[in-house]
Design a protein around this nucleic acid. Structure first.
Lengths: 225, 225
DNA sequence: TGACTTTTTATACGTACGTTCAGATAGTTT
DNA sequence: AAACTATCTGAACGTACGTATAAAAAGTCA
């Protein structure tokens, strides 16, 4: 990001310019979010984003910086919300005397499914964008800082439930669980195509089936052979 | 594809020009396969492919047609081999009196893992390319014709083992299984990152764990609630 | 050898890309 | 009102894109 003034320290509430600037900035980020989610980083052009946002070309640079910076900002913008929800649910479980593996898996998966099923198209786009970047090792450096800390928290709890499992097996089953979760959003067309005639469903409608699948999968994969 | 002569009918074995042309064509397709697998369709340029193949720009158009056509050719080129191996293993199972769900899942997953673990970098690139396009609904029209027929065959056998499962649930668990399989190739960096210190493994080394995960997942998800 | 086909080269075309910026505009403060 | 800052416009920069093609080269065959 380049020009936009800091304004952080004192934050004069009276300046309508900053308010307008922030509004425009949000329009730019929203448009970028929709475009990146729909087509992926490389396939999107700055001009598409400008058109989608209804602003001129220079505004994208002014509020979004370079294409890379814009992408990074869009990715980071909503992470905190998703992470907080996951950690909140984890805390609820931890506060109890005991909990099942299924409850743990459900706590991890459900916040994402809820985001992907919201009415707000921006949140849905964000869910799709996550599916794009998490399932592509090219973006792992970014995924590592954004989502791995929470993933490690959940790994630690699985470890407590299955102490005999190796660290590598834990990391693998968690990755498989995440991939399954993402495919509910990223492979809706294929699910519909393979079960012809069935209606297109909201991600949350797969909650039970997905949690069953992942829980059963983890149990089977971590069972002492 | 544009200019290359048909040559299909008579196939004059003596013409060294056609032999040379085919060799060049293979170099082009190999280079395209590596590039598309590494960076995805949109991020790759024709010039990159030409450089990788060691040919001039015009040769790509001559042997590969447009970028879209080149991509489609690369995708379709090795499909038959993968499909044949999957169907062969399915036939072996069908010839027996009975088989388990686990054996069915193993028959579907192992050919892909083997391709992804081969010494030949082209086959490994193809495996990665599959992971890219199958996990992106944008390419589903192509996936539908290339891989859905085989997937339906396997779905039919799962249906016979679990007659009470709904069509939609079958399609979903198969999609989740595929996503898990692909993530072994597409998310190697994350698996390694989440289990620090563990060595980078070949996809085939995850065979048991992956098959356990998917089999246990399908069983749990299709179990009568 | 000379007519013929296939392949390759080198270059060009038109378009679109990401980024930058001088200057106009709008809003705030003194 | 004047000075100042933040925002926005419109246009341009140089580069790289996908594609097409005329001409050269390589190889075949009568």
């Amino acid at each position: 990001m380049s020009q936009p003034p800091e304004n952080a320290g004192n934050s004069r509430q009276t300046d309508g310019r900053l308010a307008r600037g922030e509004a425009t900035r949000d329009r730019v980020l929203d448009a970028a979010e929709l475009c990146f989610a729909a087509h992926g980083f490389a396939a999107v052009t700055i001009r598409q984003i400008a058109r989608e946002a209804g602003v001129t070309l220079g505004v994208i640079g002014f509020h979004g910086g370079t294409k890379e910076e814009l992408f990074a900002t869009v990715l980071a913008r909503r992470t905190e919300t998703l992470t907080a929800e996951r950690l909140k649910r984890l805390d609820v479980l931890r506060a109890r005397r005991a909990f099942s593996l299924r409850e743990l898996v459900d706590a991890y998966l459900t916040p994402y499914l809820e985001i992907a099923s919201r009415g707000d198209p921006q949140w849905r786009a964000y869910a799709q964008l996550i599916a794009r970047i998490v399932s592509d090792d090219q973006f792992y450096p970014r995924v590592r800082e954004l989502y791995d800390p929470t993933a490690r928290e959940y790994m630690a709890e699985i470890r407590r439930l299955r102490p005999e499992a190796s660290e590598e097996a834990l990391a693998t089953v968690l990755t498989l669980t995440v991939s399954s979760m993402l495919s509910i959003v990223a492979s809706r067309a294929r699910i519909a195509g393979l079960s012809e005639g069935s209606p297109v469903r909201q991600p949350l409608e797969y909650r039970t089936l997905l949690v069953d699948f992942c829980t059963g999968g983890i149990e089977a994969a971590l069972a002492p052979s």
